[in-house]
Design a binder for these strands. Sequence first.
DNA 1: TGGGGTTAT
DNA 2: ATAACCC
Length: 470
Amino acid sequence: MELADAEAAGPSPEAPAPAECAPAEPGGLPGLVHDQLVPTQSSSSRVIVHVDLDCFYAQVEMISHPELKGKPLGVQQKYLVVTCNYEARELGVKKLMNVRDAKEKCPQLILVNGEDLTRYREMSYKVTELLEEFSPIVERLGFDENFVDLTEMVEKRLQQLQSNELSAVTVSGHVYNNQPVNFHNVMHMRLLVGSQVAAEMREAMHNQLGLTGCAGVASNKLLAKLVSGVFKPNQQTVLLPESCQDLINSLNHIKEMPGIGYKTAKRLEVLGINSVRDLQSFSFKILEKELGISVAQRIQKLSFGEDNSPVMPSGPPQSFSEEDSFKKCSSEVEAKKKIEELLASLLNRVCQDGRRPHTIRLVIRRYSPEKHYSRESRQCPIPSHVIQKLGTGNYDVMTPMVDILMKLFRNMVNVKMPFHLTLLSVCFCNLKAQNTAKKGLIDYYLTPSLSTTSHSGKRSFKMKDTHIED
DNA sequence: TGGGGTTAT
DNA sequence: ATAACCC
């Protein structure tokens, strides 16, 4: 059996980028991966899987406490049930439900505290690492979702097949819309093989980590993510290109489109845009005038199911932070105690990582009666003598760090005036690899001096750090 | 609304 | 430093 498709089978350098879903692509931009230009895989021929763990925190808790299995279980942070298992969901408990409402709905609900994310974070990275064994191109999204670019893997597997074996390729899991497979269509065959890889990934997660989850396979990240949620716990779905419009039209509101958040959705509502179809047909000129060319172009493409953003390998984290929220903190001593707690946990984490942070940030949230969500932050470089003490457990690194943080604190909060905070957070960022003997040399050649303004293209050079006097 | 994360401006 | 997005 032959594939009646004109596309070259091998790593074709420049296939003409056909439309993914409906309209032609205005501009195929090359993708950036780790600061390097990579050729745009004619975006419609990619195979992407989105892997989404089922009620992740609850699953981790049930592994830690097997006696909880089979009972309705919720994970609590402060007065919220942030997630719960399916037994609890069947009894009416929802994600992000108030603890009181949840207990009222479901008096038998068992609650465990999930404010310490350590075990969740560790399990989350085990999942990412497991997926990286399939393909190194894995992008994390939160603790419980990953995208993997399967394009290369799938192409290799297809090349192994004899042409008479193609008709024997089967799908693993659901096909969105129950759309019939065309075994002469190359993209169909790629996606089917993608579904097989997705099934192998879910099997490996279950066998090696004891976790269940969903997967969605499609030609880009947007569609993979949308389709992964179609059959919900512990199942997988593949989207064939012909059903793309049906999938995006199944959304009831633009806010459900990943990439269109609270703010953008509100601004679109003002323009009378509520459905995905509204956004598809809305004048681009007006959209651009309202939201700027960047957002306008991106979200209107999303509305057609087009998403050329590459799967960006996440690698190790760019930052570590610990935060705590509370009803009220109104004194400097109180703040200092909380900051010390946050810092102590962070130091443990950063020590494990091996790399060293070169910037520290303090974040606060001030109480305000109605106003939604506003945080303020101050950051500064970590003095090099403190950085050097970081790995070496011996020396006291707490004291100088707390001193710095309290200076940042007083820079934001006038402690002579009454104040009311509801959140404190400490963040280590600007992580750099540990210094070996090469460090001095690398620093000599790569560290910009203040007088060297010529190549200031890097974002770390543009950071405005608040200056802390000693 | 929690306790995290990312990128763009 | 903030604002937007994601979970």
